[in-house]
Amino acid sequence: MDDGETTIPADRAASAVPPRAGITPDAAPERDWDPLASTRTPADPPLDVLLSGTVFFDLVFTGLARMPRPGEELWSEGMGSCPGGIANLATATARLGLRTGLVAGFGDDAYADWMWDTLSHDEGIDLSASRRFAGFHSSLTVSIATDGDRAMVTHGHPLPEPLSDLVGGAPRARVAIVDLAGETSWWAQLAAQGTRIIADIGYDETERWDPADLAPLAHCHAFTPNAVEAMRYTRTETPDRAVRALAERVPLAVVTDGASGSYAIDATTGEEAYCPAVPVTALDTTGAGDVFTAAITLGTLAEQPLHDRLKFASLCSALAVQQFGGSLAAPGWGDISDWWRCMTRTADEGDLRAAYTRDRYRFLDDLVPDHPVQGRRRAQGTFALRSDAGA
């Protein structure tokens, strides 16, 4: 394992990225960026990534020193609204240039109107297999970011029909990212079509952590749990031992451990890797794991070395937590390019720490675009249908 990994100084990481990255006053017209363009062939499926799950309308409050006590009202310093749930992951993959399709159920309320338009029009996500249901309202989550973590309150109802009925109508994809605790009936069919399955899983509220829950991994190419989930399901005491146990089940095992970094073993290449996290002051951690998974997916499709995949994923997560609002905090190529140019410029000015970091991220030279790319919206105070229409 390479011991030459590095952390990125917090004052030189995502804080250097402007609100709408990749835009300069006299820049050429902005374009989207496809990091896989040079490797695409006519035989490729129409989608890179297929996702399925519940979309929530998220209201995110930030800048609270603590949670309110019963009967108490606190004012937050920041607030934003954005599509949430599976939209966090769909937006993260789309902003990294992956052709993304989402199978989800939407209501017929104003929240659903705004989320559908944001995901399909602004983010370019294929919703051709998604459905609008009459008389059905959007699920909603209020997320409060405080003390380095978040607390949430959610309301919603089951969809009128299962999403598995809609997945068959989705375009073919190279990768499907799925929830191990969700519907699994359609995984085998996708795997038989040549789609690689990347699975994640959430916290087991039953506290049983039954290893039998991991049985669907037989259809999966990769598994990306966090350290708590990985250790409890594998009955191990460290993330390193957990990732080794999971590597016996899937070709690519990745275990994330928050600020302590990430671990991975890729049996298809024989690589093993550890990468420290990028140390930054987080504004809102919502969706950081989704951004990490999106970046790992891009790196896997691009056939990057495992160390580079982990470093890229760590960087993307660090950029995301500098913004609030899960889905719309996901970095685009403007954010990544601005960070890389800032790091390179600082290194050229003689900063030794920046030079060390630049050397470890040299692979970005082959990834970042050399032209301005389309800016991406951030979470906003309200979904503002009228101002959106007049923009």
Rank of each mutant, 00 (worst) to 15 (best):
M115G: 00
P18K: 11
I8E: 03
W114V: 13
Y111P: 02
W33E: 02
A28N: 04
A13K: 00
E30T: 12
L36M: 12
A90Y: 10
A21W: 10
I86Y: 03
A10W: 12
G84Q: 10
T24W: 13
T62Q: 09
V60I: 14
E72I: 14
R66S: 14
G53A: 12
D58G: 05
A16M: 11
L64K: 11
R69I: 05
G105E: 03
A92Q: 03
A104G: 04
A112I: 06
T91Q: 11
R12N: 08
T93M: 04
D108A: 15
A90K: 01
A13P: 02
P18H: 10
D26G: 08
D113I: 06
F106K: 04
L96C: 00
T93E: 01
A92C: 07
P25T: 05
L89I: 00
P18Y: 07
G53T: 12
M67D: 09
R31Y: 06
S81I: 06
L51D: 03
T93L: 04
A94M: 04
D109Y: 08
G80R: 08
A112N: 06
G53Y: 05
A94G: 02
A90G: 11
V60M: 12
R99T: 01
C82H: 02
G80H: 12
V17D: 00
V17S: 03
T91A: 15
T93I: 05
L89S: 04
P35Q: 09
A27H: 08
E73W: 02
L59R: 13
S38W: 07
D32P: 02
A28M: 15
V103C: 05
L50W: 07
T62L: 02
G84I: 08
I8Y: 12
R95G: 03
N88G: 04
A110L: 15
L36A: 01
P29G: 05
N88E: 10
V103P: 01
R69P: 00
T93N: 01
S38H: 14
P42M: 15
V55S: 06
D11Y: 03
L36R: 07
A10V: 06
A65D: 15
R12M: 11
T39C: 12
R95D: 07
G105C: 06
G71E: 13
R40S: 10
A43Y: 00
L119K: 08
A110N: 05
A13C: 15
A110P: 00
W75Y: 05
G80Q: 08
F57T: 01
R12C: 03
G80E: 02
G107P: 06
R31F: 11
F56P: 03
A14P: 01
L64H: 02
V55K: 01
L47C: 08
A94H: 00
D34S: 13
P29V: 11
G101C: 09
Y111L: 14
A27W: 02
D109E: 13
L89W: 00
S38K: 14
V60T: 15
R20V: 14
F106I: 11
D32H: 06
P68M: 13
